[in-house]
Amino acid sequence: MLNRTMLLTLLACPVWLLFAGQAALANEPYRELDRPRAYTPDVKGDARFSDTYRYWKDRSRLDPAMAGNPDEYWKLNWKFMDPPFNQAIHGGHFAMDHGETRFMSLNRTHSFARCLGAGKQGLKGLRAGYPRYVARLGRVAGLEEMIEHCAAKEGVVMQNGSYDNSAVALYIASHSNGMPIRIQVSKGPMRQAFERGRLLYHTRSGRQNFACASCHVHNTGKHLRGNNITTPFGDASHYPVYRTRYELQSLHLRMIECQLDTGAQPLLPGSRAYTDLEVFLTALSNGYPVAVPTERD
């Protein structure tokens, strides 16, 4: 019987890609893929994607004229909302303070930070190295999943996607501010997760039969009603993010929002599929510095 890994290996091979996007192998449910393509697991890969990276490469040197023109927002990948360009005080700052308080009370014996993988450097750089393979769990996990897991060990409920969880993630991320995202997807379980994530990104689902790629890859820069679709490169570096309408939003909750918007049944935060997508999207931010707290509309 073909298992999923074998299926993905098959799908990943270029010869297979020549045959349109239909995936129909024995024992696997019928799925349609929307024009899968290859990705360089680094933010610079955008040069061969939307070619907007040059505009948002350095957050401290964005073109103010572009930041003042809604037609150009997508070319800046909305980075004008990030510090240092955006110096406004917003809900993200309060969330970060809350996250610090929650972290301190969880970490009285230092076992919480240890559980998250903090070494001699403390929290420094921790965010930049997630998602990662966690041998203890035998799977790849994102930072928010680990916060839930490690908080439970301290006897505290901190569900993935909850305000407290994202607030702690934000506080931890702030110790990586300015540090480039660096996850390895060249071998082992992380490579497999990246490959699964890449294909999921191109897999159609829901009532409208859209894949993430239907919008984010094949219609980058186009108008979708009031929205202009941006490149997926460099997006993972500012999560969790303060959203005017959603308090605090983790990356998995952002995926849920896109799925609900397109009439697709959402999955639970921390599900394997969202974690694979998180690995894929985070790899597209490799080399791009963390910048929190930030906000989006």
């Binding site: 449910p29 019928y30 999921l200 829901g206 039969n209 049944q265 969202y274 997508l277």
Partner: peptide, 12 residues
């Protein structure tokens, strides 16, 4: 309608 879950065994 189908989801992105690896556990979803239904055909699109």
């Amino acid at each position: 309608w189908t989801t992105l879950s690896h556990l979803d065994q239904r055909d699109a």
